[in-house]
Amino acid sequence: MTHHERKNITILKETILPGESKTINMEIAKLHTMTKLKIPIIVERSKFEGPTVLFSAGLHGDEINGIEIVRQIITQKINKPKIGTIICIPVINVFGFLNQTREFPDGRDLNRVFPGSKTGSLASQFAHSILTEIIPHIDYAIDFHAGGASRFNAAQVRIVPDNSELKALADVFNAPFGLFSKNILGSFRNSCDKLGVKMLLFEGGKSIDINEEITNEGLEGTKRVLHSLKMLNARKKVSFPENKTLYIEKSNWIRAKHSGMFHGLTKVGSFVEKGQILAKISDPYGKVEHILKSPNAGFIINANDSPIIYQGDAIYHISNTTGNE
């Protein structure tokens, strides 16, 4: 039986019929102040049968740019489908969002405890309820992330290597960059994959930050995916960029050879030549200035935005291939 034949979608004992809109609150543990924590799950169903798509963000509570993309999917009514169902969870890790931290209050990275268990740690219990309550209904998903620890990611989609269906979906999303990365054990993406959900992982921007350009990349890609599934609301315009996604097979981190104040000269997403000056690292006293050069030609897919860096810190993530594929 395919997902499409199920007429009813029931999440946390609430049934959403075709043509219905519902916000379901997933209650997780109370805070230590006894305040109830609710995670709103926003469900929009068309009257017509079709795929069910999930848009989620805030798996890491400090990755606000992803949350902003899902928020705009809702405010721009991109989540009202022509056919099928769209489910939005703008903030998965409300605890982290509250504290502006990546982790769950139990110190765990929620993205490493999937599939979780009913009786495990708080993060583990929560992962388990997402997988049992929501994921069985889902055909396609886009999970929105941002770079951690002031490392700014160029807009990119990550998929596992050698999966033609996902590659086709990533082509449709058409982010500036595509990275092949294996599923990490314990990750949401890994669990979704095992349950037959076709998931794209979007990365863009940095934590504790909202960047308009990144938000737009996320929104436009989302509209292209919905358009290709014939789900995009007829009133929404979809744009198709001239450049196709640049897929990166190999990449490496350029690390700082010195500690000091960091002056980046290179824009994320740009192409650099071998030997090009990427940044300067100086001491605070005006004595020393070190120049950082690119070890190879390639695209800069991530840049450190921190003003102070230590020797060995990852500063730029650069691709090793210049051509497509």
Rank of each mutant, 00 (worst) to 15 (best):
T2S: 10
T2H: 08
H4R: 11
E5F: 06
E5N: 11
R6A: 14
N8V: 07
N8S: 08
L12Q: 13
L12P: 07
L17N: 09
L17Q: 11
G19E: 09
K22R: 15
K22I: 07
K30H: 08
L31T: 13
T35I: 11
K36A: 10
K38L: 14
I41T: 08
S46V: 07
S46E: 09
E49W: 00
E49S: 13
S56D: 11
A57N: 07
G58E: 04
G61P: 03
N65A: 08
I67Y: 01
I67F: 01
I73F: 03
I73Q: 08
I73G: 06
N79W: 03
K80M: 04
K80T: 10
G84K: 02
G84P: 01
C88T: 08
V91Y: 02
L98A: 00
E103I: 07
P105R: 08
L110A: 06
L110V: 05
R112I: 07
G116N: 08
K118E: 14
K118R: 12
A123E: 05
Q125W: 00
I130T: 02
L131A: 05
T132L: 04
E133N: 14
I135D: 03
P136T: 13
P136S: 06
P136E: 07
I138C: 06
Y140W: 11
I142N: 02
A146I: 00
A146W: 00
G147T: 12
G148N: 11
F152M: 08
A154Y: 06
A155S: 15
Q156H: 00
Q156T: 11
R158T: 09
I159F: 05
D162M: 09
A170D: 05
P176C: 11
L179T: 09
N183E: 15
R189F: 01
N190R: 10
N190H: 13
K194M: 10
V197L: 03
F202P: 02
I208K: 09
D209H: 15
N211E: 15
T222N: 05
R224S: 08
L226M: 13
K230I: 00
K230N: 14
A234Y: 12
K236T: 13
F240L: 10
T245F: 01
R255A: 09
K257Q: 14
H258M: 08
K267C: 03
K267Q: 14
V268K: 03
G269K: 09
F271T: 09
E273R: 15
G275F: 04
P284D: 12
E289D: 12
H290W: 14
I291R: 11
I300L: 10
I301N: 03
I301M: 11
N302K: 12
A303N: 04
N304E: 07
P307S: 09
I308T: 12
I309H: 00
I309D: 01
I309S: 01
D313W: 02
N320G: 10
N320D: 13
T321S: 13
